[in-house]
Write a protein that binds this DNA or RNA. Structure first.
Lengths: 270, 270
DNA sequence: TCTTGACTCTCCCCCTGCTGGAGGCCCCAC
DNA sequence: GTGGGGCCTCCAGCAGGGGGAGAGTCAAGA
């Protein structure tokens, strides 16, 4: 007979655990001194303890171990229960893998945003824009209203989105509260939704400027780009565009000083 | 402003959970009525709630979420912490895979024991035994001592085990308490351990008998096989062997009436 | 025989991230 | 003013133990 401390060394189970297994009734001491309450174990109980430890190592809950130990007598009966436990663990693995996949997706998105921030220059450039299919909503309102449109639009056409959010401005001037705005996304194919309208947005020659900073400070960017048009003797075509390369992040508002917005002014062809 | 019930619908988080997040200080209501204690939330808090739900979905503990939400303002800072979380999850996956591997191993063992029970005939046979590498411990004691040796041996050479547990008897007679016994396993390569000795066990011609039943009833088996040797004019070589095809199971003692033991008596070559 | 120090006992709280329930207010509509 | 549903706080419980207090026990040495 061993005291609980000795038995703990034999079985490599903590004393607390042995007492807990006693309370749970899955591993009873072989003798309990009635006066002192001391637990004593026979060496033969070590086998049962080892079986319990083995089953716990396979993530079997105590309650299930109790049933197994009381109702089963042969290994052959264990096969089914082992395999069903295996499946439970397998499905837990599946859940974890899903989590990791979504972490990967978010990390990729964050990184691509960062890379874009490095990639672009802040000088005025001339570009040839490609034709694209554009799904957007046209409304009259404030410039700050576009954010909300992106949220709802992204939910309804999510999987067809083929580029960064954009807005088109159909006024040739700055307007306070009733600007004529079209906000949406480039899409990979024409989609039909109740809210959005799909159309082909023609490309062509354009002058562009990358702006880093909060949206309220876009003004000087427009000043600079319009000055450029003037010196080159080019004239602006409508609608003008803004492409939001980096805005509020997936998790947080982010730092508006790092927002990255591309102003695109189409040039009238002669 | 929404009541907690409305906000619960918006965020798809149970009311109880919202109250818990309030207690934990990671999602405070935007206003609390001082008289009634009612919590009220602004719609803008839904974004924070979504972030919390997302992080919880990635298994981040509440305490970590609290730190993240209070100290981080940009997505870029999240990359490291997301990747470290990814690693934690990956290692949990690893642990689960290990568990499943050991379940597989045990299921295989149980099944092979079952199959052996069907496969073997119970008559006396003559066989040619192959040479094998044998890792065992030689000691003097009782026949019933071999069980303990298998347990400790299996733990130390576990992955190299290449066959059923065996014992070799170096006495030419039955001995009560000081039999000269060697107990161990066939192994796939020579292994070096403090307890066990490895050697090549030479094969050769042998007479064998499969015995079903408890170890105490092996006696008649020996009687039968020795009588067979005599009638054939063969003489016994040492050590004799017992191969334990099926004994006490991984989990349970099993039914001793189903134990399956093969007696192998090597035959002296002229 | 006494003392000392190591063990052991029971009992209670703590961990995580909620969930359920009891008992009691509060709000709104009819 | 009344009913019914919503909301409040507080308490308990889950799984599998871990940590620690305060008290009793055991065995060896002086």
């Amino acid at each position: 007979m061993f005291t609980i401390g000795e038995f703990s060394i034999i079985t490599r189970l903590p004393v607390k655990t042995l007492r807990y297994y006693h309370d749970e009734g899955i591993l009873m001491p072989d003798y309990i001194d009635e006066d002192s309450g001391y637990r004593y174990y026979r060496e033969s109980s070590a086998r049962r303890a080892a079986v319990i430890a083995l089953l716990r190592g396979m993530n079997f809950p105590i309650a299930e171990i109790r049933v197994i130990l009381s109702e089963f007598t042969e290994d052959a009966q264990m096969v089914d229960i082992l395999l069903s436990q295996r499946e439970k663990i397998e499905s837990a693995i599946g859940r974890f893998k899903t989590i990791n996949a979504s972490i990967d997706a978010i990390v990729r998105e964050i990184r691509s945003n960062e890379m874009n921030a490095e990639k672009y220059s802040y000088n005025i450039e001339e570009k040839i824009l490609e034709d694209m299919i554009f799904a957007g909503k046209r409304f009259k309102g404030k410039y700050s209203d576009v954010g909300g449109v992106f949220g709802t639009a992204a939910r309804s056409i999510g999987k067809w989105i083929a580029g960064k959010p954009m807005s088109l401005y159909h006024d040739g001037e700055y307007r306070e509260g009733d600007a004529d705005i079209e906000a949406g996304f480039p899409v990979s194919k024409t989609v039909r939704t109740p809210d959005l309208e799909c159309r082909i947005l023609p490309g062509g020659r354009a002058v562009t400027l990358m702006h880093r900073g909060p949206y309220e400070k876009l003004g000087p960017g427009y000043t600079k780009i319009l000055a450029h048009l003037e010196t080159k003797g080019l004239s602006m075509d409508l609608p003008t565009r803004e492409v939001y390369h980096k805005g509020p992040g997936v998790f947080f508002r982010g730092n508006p000083n790092n927002y990255l917005t591309e102003i695109q002014i189409p040039v009238k062809q002669d």
